[in-house]
């Protein structure tokens, strides 16, 4: 295995590589141990259940394959989301694993992802006069329509490709934002 990589990371990298060949449920702990050169037992020690493994692999995939482009404005957020839909389209097996991992009962303390925090911060900056409650429901809506969940449902349930998915996403973003007062500086 690659030098300088710790065992859990090596396990996750191998699991991600195996996803190119087989579905997540067919990847065995034994084969992961073999690939990394550790015992099956060691794999279990790092990932006590398949839920732990699923979350771990999804985290690895998110950072390695679907890095989030930075955004500080709404149009940049939309661009970032569209870029991710395209990336999901080109690696569907990875994207479905991310959508699954974001759906299971969390194995540890669940906390907001970086994406969510960036989105909330962006909205708060762009719409400083909006109250907390309105801000949160707009943020939740935008976050949910920018998610791997959304991509997965549109792809499987509606046979949509990334550009079509982006179209539904854009329309929903416009609607969700339409109620918000914009920056209170001189109205143009």
């Amino acid at each position: 295995m690659a030098e300088g990589v710790d065992t859990p990371t090596a396990i996750l990298a191998n699991a991600a590589a195996a996803l190119r060949e087989s579905p997540f449920d067919d990847i065995s702990y034994r084969s992961l141990g073999d690939a990394v050169g550790v015992s099956e037992r060691t794999v279990y020690r790092h990932f006590p259940t398949r839920s732990h493994l699923l979350e771990g692999v999804a985290g690895w995939i998110e950072s390695a394959e679907f890095p989030l482009p930075p955004f500080v404005t709404i149009p940049q957020f939309q661009d970032a989301s569209r870029a991710r839909f395209l990336a999901f389209d080109s690696s569907p097996a990875f994207a479905f694993v991310c959508a699954r991992a974001a759906s299971i009962s969390p194995t540890g303390e669940s906390e907001a992802t970086f994406f969510t925090r960036a989105l909330v911060a962006m909205l708060a900056t762009n719409h400083p006069s909006v109250n907390e409650r309105d801000l949160r429901r707009v943020a939740a809506t935008l976050r949910y329509f920018a998610s791997a969940h959304f991509w997965a449902r549109m792809r499987t349930g509606f046979d949509m490709s990334a550009p079509e998915i982006s179209d539904v996403f854009d329309r929903t973003v416009v609607q969700a934002l339409s109620g918000l007062p914009t920056l209170s500086r001189t109205s143009r």
Binding site: S110, A112, A140, Y144, R153, D167
Partner: peptide, 23 residues
């Protein structure tokens, strides 16, 4: 299509999961 798709997306368990987990 966009309206049907958006409503179908909202009318699902994943909405509950995401709003709870992320927010």
């Amino acid at each position: 299509r966009a309206i049907v798709a958006a409503l179908a997306h909202l009318d699902s368990a994943a909405t509950w999961v995401t709003f709870r987990r992320e927010f």
